[in-house]
Amino acid sequence: MKGHVVLSHGSDSGPEGTKVQALAAVAQACGWRASRADYRDLDARGMLACINPRIARLRHKVRPNERTILAGSSMGAFVSGLASLQADVAGLFLIATPLEIPGYESAFDAAHVPMALVHGWNDELCPASEAISFARQRRATLLMVPDSHRLADHVDLIAEHFRLFLGAIEAQPDLGALADIPE
């Protein structure tokens, strides 16, 4: 296995959601282990009450010394970014990312690792201008598509973009694996 991809669904979805399923299939086809976090029980608590428990659940899926990519859509992207500040990850693939959730204690942030964002020009929940600004600030790859927050018309394109992202991560040395090499 090349590593582990942990996929996080949005708050109105589940681990069988269209985008999460598509990304899991790509990861597996590329030789990565893919797991889909299930947050539906936490989401039942409400928007603000589920965030910290989601982050905690996601953090526990990251294993030491295993190359890990966090990928998520909407609320899944938000918690993936925040979890990356607390866990060692090799990259982030974030879809329709909210940069703030009204009432939550902090704005979106993420570790300084390779990052790709996908966002809809017509996103009715998360303004495109904010995604562009964040990507510019972080020098992250950004794919903008003519779609709404759900990005339902571009699932195949997102999956292909994810395949390319995984290839770029694979091309980088796995520094965690180097720790296992005897001197």
Rank of each mutant, 00 (worst) to 15 (best):
G72T: 09
A177S: 09
A37R: 05
R63E: 15
L82G: 05
E105T: 11
G167Y: 00
A22G: 06
D153V: 08
H154M: 00
F108I: 05
D174H: 02
A37T: 12
A25T: 13
P15Y: 09
H112M: 11
Y39S: 10
A177N: 00
S80Q: 13
A159M: 08
L175S: 08
K61R: 07
P127M: 04
L151C: 11
R136M: 08
L7Q: 04
D12L: 12
A140Y: 10
E66C: 00
D180W: 00
W32E: 06
A128I: 11
K19I: 12
A111I: 08
R136K: 15
D38L: 10
P64A: 15
I55Y: 02
D12E: 08
H4D: 00
L48S: 12
R67D: 06
P173T: 13
Q86W: 10
V79Q: 02
A111V: 06
F134T: 03
M75Y: 08
V62G: 01
V89N: 10
L85P: 05
G167M: 01
W32Q: 08
D153R: 14
W121T: 15
V89P: 09
D174T: 06
D12Q: 10
S106A: 02
L151T: 06
S35A: 07
F134W: 14
S129V: 06
A128K: 13
W121A: 14
A116Y: 12
A24L: 05
S73P: 07
S80G: 12
S35Y: 05
G120V: 15
M1N: 07
M1H: 11
S129A: 12
A152T: 15
G14D: 15
V118R: 02
N122C: 13
I158S: 03
D88W: 00
